[in-house]
Computed example of a mutant assay.
Amino acid sequence: MGYTELLERKGELLKKTVENWVLKENRDGLNHQEAHIYRNMLKEFHQNEYELNAVRDEEAIKRQESGSNGKAE
């Protein structure tokens, strides 16, 4: 499993976890500790998305460069 796939899977898990926290917040409300965990989970989710996009951009640039090098030869 490559780094991109790892980040994608982590993102899926974080997204599902955040969804569960949102449902709990809407249904029962969150106490102070739960709200803290929820905020940290959101931060981790956004960080993961940022990292995943950066990796995808790097891969796209590498593909473009290798594609243009292949045409030049």
Rank of each mutant, 00 (worst) to 15 (best):
G11D: 01
N26P: 00
K24L: 00
E19N: 07
V22G: 02
G11N: 03
K62T: 09
E51P: 13
E12N: 07
E8P: 03
L6G: 11
D57A: 15
E44K: 09
E12A: 12
N53T: 14
E73T: 11
E51A: 15
L52K: 06
T4M: 11
N31S: 00
K10M: 10
K71G: 00
E34Y: 10
K62F: 03
A35E: 09
F45Q: 09
M1T: 10
A60T: 14
Q64W: 00
D28I: 10
L52N: 04
N31R: 05
K62C: 09
E51N: 15
Y50V: 13
Q33R: 09
E73C: 12
E58R: 15
E34G: 03
H36I: 03
H32E: 11
K43M: 13
N69Y: 10
N53W: 10
L30E: 02
A72L: 07
S68H: 14
K15T: 06
L52D: 08
L52H: 01
R9E: 10
D57S: 15
W21T: 05
E25R: 14
W21L: 01
L42C: 13
A54G: 12
K24G: 00
I37M: 10
G67P: 05
R56F: 05
G11P: 02
M41K: 05
E34R: 02
N69D: 14
R56A: 06
I37E: 01
L52M: 08
E25M: 11
L23S: 05
K16Y: 08
E34S: 02
Y50H: 12
S68A: 13
Q64F: 11
F45G: 03
L7M: 05
E19V: 04
K62S: 10
W21C: 02
Y50L: 12
E59A: 08
I61H: 13
L52I: 05
Y50W: 09
I37D: 10
N20S: 00
F45M: 06
E51Y: 14
G67Q: 09
V22M: 01
Q64C: 08
E8S: 02
V18M: 04
K15F: 01
W21Y: 02
V18H: 02
E44S: 08
E19M: 03
M41A: 08
E8G: 09
H46W: 10
G67N: 01
N20E: 01
G29K: 00
V18E: 05
L7V: 06
Q64E: 07
N48L: 09
Q47P: 00
E34I: 02
S68F: 13
D28E: 04
Q47N: 09
N69F: 14
K43C: 07
L7A: 04
V55A: 11
N53R: 14
N26D: 00
M41T: 02
L6N: 05
R9G: 11
A72G: 07
G67K: 10
D28P: 06
V18D: 03
R27E: 07
G29S: 07
E8K: 06
T4F: 06
L13R: 13
H46D: 13
K15M: 06
A54T: 10
N20Q: 04
H32V: 07
V18G: 02
L52T: 08
E58P: 12
L30G: 03
G67E: 05
K24I: 06
N20M: 04
